[in-house]
């Protein structure tokens, strides 16, 4: 269980965007409703150059979320010590308001597979993942938020629901959660669940950040809808509606728009952030 002695920091309950270097000039000149930015930690683990210069400039203007994609929290092996040290250095350098990672694995043996791979939800994986979260929070020196995955399949061996699994991780480790509403929509569609039931059973008190993003539509070999988490399109209306449903229950939270592939002009992403801000404004003035 992680108990922080450091002063608690938080992202503002406002709209944020996943930062893309090509938006640097436009974002700083015309941020719209954007109050904070999120970076993928691994892109800022080089020694210097433009990435760090831009990040220094951004942190003068915006609150910062450091979002890791390479820690392999769900891996069978413990998190890599060298990688935790890199994370710690990045966090010490930029003092972000939030640090988050994924309920997934990406490293196997010496290989890094560059994708967020799924794990079964059992008592055994619960013990393992809780241990890894403890290790990371101790090593990095602060609380982490853990993000729910987007799923394309289920493990027959699973004995716990994803929401129960996450709630138990919060209970055991003191970690917070990053609720990706787009992932909820994707997983629920793909696995035949009701996304609102998922949200209603999610431990919303532990949520320190919410994600929305775009996805692609496909079909499996039986003609069933199969949604793919692409972060390469606008957020669809059912996901905005699910965000409204979530915020009505959770109260205001930091809401991030993710757009990582086929990245559009700044104005398009800014409009998405403005829409997230409008969703937040709705719950403030019921």
């Amino acid at each position: 269980m992680y108990h922080s002695s450091a002063p608690s920091t938080r992202l503002p309950n406002a709209a944020g965007v996943g930062y893309k270097p090509q938006h640097f000039t436009d974002l700083t000149r015309d941020p719209g409703a954007v109050a904070w930015v999120e970076i993928h930690a691994e892109n800022y683990m080089g020694d210097g150059g433009r990435p760090h210069a831009q990040l220094r400039a951004l942190t003068e203007i915006f609150a910062l979320s450091v979002h890791g994609v390479g820690l392999s929290i769900g891996g069978e092996a413990p998190p890599d010590k060298a990688h935790m040290a890199r994370l710690r250095k990045l966090i010490e350098t930029y003092a972000p308001q939030s640090f988050s990672e994924h309920l997934a694995w990406s490293t196997h043996g010496a290989e890094f597979l560059n994708d967020l791979l799924p794990l079964p939800y059992t008592d055994a994986t619960l013990v393992r993942v809780a241990g890894h979260i403890d290790t990371v929070q101790q090593s990095v020196g602060r609380q982490m938020l853990l993000e729910n995955p987007s799923s394309y399949l289920a493990f027959t061996e699973s004995t716990l629901s994803e929401t129960d699994f996450l709630a138990e991780l919060v209970h055991r480790t003191g970690c917070g959660l990053l609720l990706d509403v787009n992932n909820v929509f994707i997983s629920s569609t793909n696995l035949g669940l009701d996304p609102r039931t998922y949200i209603d059973s999610f431990p919303l008190d532990a949520v320190g950040e919410i994600h929305v993003g775009g996805h692609d539509e496909d079909m499996d070999e039986h003609g069933a809808r199969l949604l793919i988490d692409s972060h390469g399109a606008q957020v669809v209306d059912p996901v905005w509606a699910l965000l409204d449903h979530t915020l009505a229950r959770s109260g205001p939270r930091p809401v991030l728009v993710e757009w990582d592939t086929d990245v559009p002009d700044w104005e398009v992403l800014r409009d998405e952030a403005d829409r997230a801000a409008a969703a937040l404004a709705c719950i403030r003035t019921p």
Binding site: N114, A154, F155, E221
Partner: peptide, 29 residues
């Protein structure tokens, strides 16, 4: 074996999403 579609049917092509993601992301890199 042991992967399904959430309703008990074998995962089948759903597994290919991960296959495609891994290869496509590395090819893009």
């Amino acid at each position: 074996a042991g992967l399904d579609d959430g309703g008990g049917a074998p995962a089948g092509a759903r597994y290919d999403v991960y296959r495609n993601n891994v290869t496509a992301s590395l090819v893009d890199a």
